[in-house]
Design a protein around this nucleic acid. Sequence first.
DNA 1: GCGTAGCGTAACCACATGGTTACAAATACC
DNA 2: GGTATTTGTAACCATGTGGTTACGCTACGC
Lengths: 113, 113
Amino acid sequence: MVTNTRPRSAGAFGAIADPTRRAILDLLRTGDLCAGDLARQFPVSRPAIAKHVRILRSAGLLREHRRAQQRIYSLDPAALGEIDNWLAPYRLFWAARLTDLKQLLESTENRND
Amino acid sequence: MVTNTRPRSAGAFGAIADPTRRAILDLLRTGDLCAGDLARQFPVSRPAIAKHVRILRSAGLLREHRRAQQRIYSLDPAALGEIDNWLAPYRLFWAARLTDLKQLLESTENRND
DNA sequence: GCGTAGCGTAACCACATGGTTACAAATACC
DNA sequence: GGTATTTGTAACCATGTGGTTACGCTACGC
């Protein structure tokens, strides 16, 4: 019996379920942004973005630090590891991708040291 | 402007957002199951599972074939590639962080003992 | 000190979502 | 053919979710 204590405070899986939140993460990948600049990238209101940011933060995907009145948000993708881990056994199914990943990691190592 | 045509028919990201649906996929990873056997693994009603299965199927993650009155469900994890692809650039990110962390840890070890 | 810029929160609303029970359809069994 | 088994669908309900507008707080500029 898979007794399923539903966490109801989403976590990473819930956080990336929404396309707007994924777009926020994608944007932040290119550099930090303050709340206003972030919100200006989307066709929805600033409070709506604030709520998404709140969810992303509670999922541990965003860090916030303040500069003057601004709140600067930066990516903290470590929490995506949960998803990556869950995905891992399925990745066996499409083994061809594994070599891609290996190459990716190798090139990263090269770039990084 | 990230103009965000919300698909509202979930897709893989929405499909794996629910813990029950992830558990269904995990179960199916060990072998095919008919609807009844599947439902018996969970503390919710059979129709609830049927709805989850429907969502997983429309996300392309499950295949169904019939045997007598039974519907046998089998995993088709190819659609998880969408998630894997989205995750890829972040994997770079935390690979970079990991080496940063490694360096940090090494220098800390040196300082610390 | 005072106006203004930047931003989160509260209150509210429409609708999606996950669950339930009741029912109907298809297939095996005798 | 009649009955039991297996299963999806319909109808309904409570709650979650993403959006809005209105408001309040904090920090700079002068």
